[in-house]
Amino acid sequence: MTIITDSVSLATLCDKLTKEPFICIDTEFIREKTYWPKLCLVQISGPKGEPFAIDPLHEGIDLSPLFSLMINSKIVKVLHAARQDIEIFLHLIGQLPNPIFDTQVAAMVCGFGESASYEHLARKIADARIDKSSRFSDWSGRPLEKRQLKYALSDVIHLPRIYLTLKKRLAETGRESWIAKEMAALGKQETYITEPKTAWKKIKTRGASSRTLAVLRELAAVREEWAILYDLPRQHVIRDQSLLAISVSQPTTMEELVRVRGLKGTLTKGKLVSSMLKAIERGKNLKLEKYPETPRKPDNHPASPAVVDLLKVLLKVRCDENSIAAPLVAKNSDLIEIAAGLEKNSVLTGWRRKVFGEDALKLIRGQLSLRVNNGEVHIHTSCEKKN
C-alpha cells in the first residue's frame, strides 16, 4: 500500500498520470463540525487500477500538482457518487474538476438500479468484495491504520474496470444522452454552492405564509453567512426548527429572541443576535411584491390517487424492461401532472417519452391497460380510442 506524504513524490505521480486518458478519484473527509468538508485523504489510480493514497494533512506537502491534474480538461476524472468529492476540490481549488464521469449516475441506465453503491458495482462488474468496516473511521487521525488504507484504496482499485464497463454499455445502447443532464449538473458551481439569499429554500416551511417566508429568507441568509465565516455546520449556528419559529414569532428584542425554543445558550450575545434582529426587521419591512413566492405544490393538481398509483406500476414495469432506474425517468410530481392531464412535462419529451411517456398517455386515455397473469404485470394496448 503506497501513501504519498511529500511534494516530490506527489509531483512525480501527477506527472505520470497526466499522460493517461482517465484517472479514478475518491476522498475521505470529515464534516461533522465544519461547514466545509475537511479533506483527510485522496485516493487515486490510473487505467490499470494501481492505487495511491495521498496524505493532504502531512506537514509541508504541496497539493498544487494534484489540483492541476483535477482541472486538466484532457483527462476524464472518474468518481463514484461524485458530488461531495467535487465540492471538496471546488472549495480547495476554486474551480470545478472537469471533465467528470460519475459511475453511480451511469449505472442508473445500465441496469444496476437507483443509487447503486460502489460495493454493488464492484461485486457485479469486478467480482470483488469490499470490506466496509473502516468506512466511518476518524480519517483525521494519524498515523492511519493498515485496515483504513486498505479500505480507502479499494475504492479506486476496481473503479477503472467499472468505468470502462459502463462506458462500453452506454456506447452500445446509445444511452449517453440519457444521463447528459445529470452529468452536466456535476459541472455547475450552483450544484455545490448555496447562495445566502436562496438558503431558505432548503428549509421545510410547512405551508408558511409569504410574510413568514420573507423573514425566513433574511434569517437564513444571515445563518449561511455566519456558518461560512466561522466554518460551522448550519445546524450548529441555529437549527432549522428554531429559525422557522423566529420567522413566525418575529421578535424585536434580544430578550424575546432568546425565548424561542432551542436558542437558549446559543444566541445570548454578540454580533449574531444583532444581525438576526436586523434580518427580522428587513423581512417585516419588505413590500408585498418583494415577498418570496410560496413553494409550488405539484400535488395540488386535481389528479386521482388511483391513477397516479397505476402510473407508478406502469413506470416500474417499463423501467425494469429497459434496465433503467425509475427516478431518472419520472418523479412523483411528474406522475401527478400526467394524471391531471398536463402534458407540458419533461417525461413526455425525448427518450423519456419513448420509454414511458407515450404509454403513460395511453393509460390515462384508456388506450392501455395493466393485467396480472401468473403473478406478473402485463401491458395490453388497445387500438380503440376512448373519449
Rank of each mutant, 00 (worst) to 15 (best):
V347G: 03
C319D: 03
L149Q: 09
A227Q: 15
Y291I: 01
P65V: 03
A122F: 07
V42Y: 13
N373H: 15
G111S: 04
N98Q: 14
V313F: 08
M254W: 05
H301D: 02
K38A: 11
R129M: 11
S304V: 06
I86E: 06
S115K: 12
A126Q: 00
A106I: 11
P292Q: 10
P298L: 13
F29S: 04
K269F: 09
P233I: 06
T194E: 04
I71Q: 09
E50T: 10
P295Q: 08
M1F: 03
V215F: 03
R234T: 07
G350I: 00
R365Y: 03
W36H: 15
N300Q: 09
A306K: 13
P295S: 07
C110W: 00
Y151L: 01
A152L: 13
F136V: 10
T194V: 10
D6C: 06
K77V: 02
E59F: 09
K264P: 08
L216D: 07
Q189G: 04
L286F: 08
A180V: 01
K197T: 15
A106M: 11
T18A: 14
T34Q: 09
R371L: 15
N322R: 08
P56L: 06
I379M: 01
A171H: 12
I93S: 09
V76A: 02
R169I: 09
P65N: 01
M108Y: 00
T12Y: 05
L10G: 00
K297E: 10
R261H: 15
V248P: 07
P233C: 05
L363Y: 00
G174R: 12
R282D: 08
L263W: 10
S346G: 06
Y151F: 06
F112K: 02
S115E: 05
A53R: 06
M70P: 14
Y151G: 02
R175Q: 05
K19C: 05
K287H: 11
Q235P: 03
I30A: 05
D138A: 07
I157V: 15
D320F: 05
L288D: 11
D127P: 05
A184M: 09
L170C: 04
E87R: 10
G341F: 13
F136S: 10
E119K: 12
G111M: 01
L277I: 12
K287P: 12
E225Q: 12
S154G: 01
W200A: 08
E172M: 05
S134H: 06
R142K: 03
K354I: 05
A208F: 07
V308I: 15
T173A: 00
I336R: 13
L263H: 12
P292N: 10
D55V: 13
D138Y: 07
G174S: 12
A82E: 00
P97A: 14
L186K: 13
S137F: 09
V308L: 04
A128D: 10
T2A: 08
R169W: 15
L363S: 04
K16Y: 10
E225V: 08
K269G: 08
R147F: 14
S209E: 09
T12R: 14
L149S: 11
V42H: 08
K48N: 12
L342K: 15
Q43M: 09
G94C: 11
H158E: 06
L257R: 15
G350Y: 02
V307D: 03
R296D: 13
A221F: 11
S177V: 02
A221Y: 14
E172R: 01
K264I: 11
L342T: 07
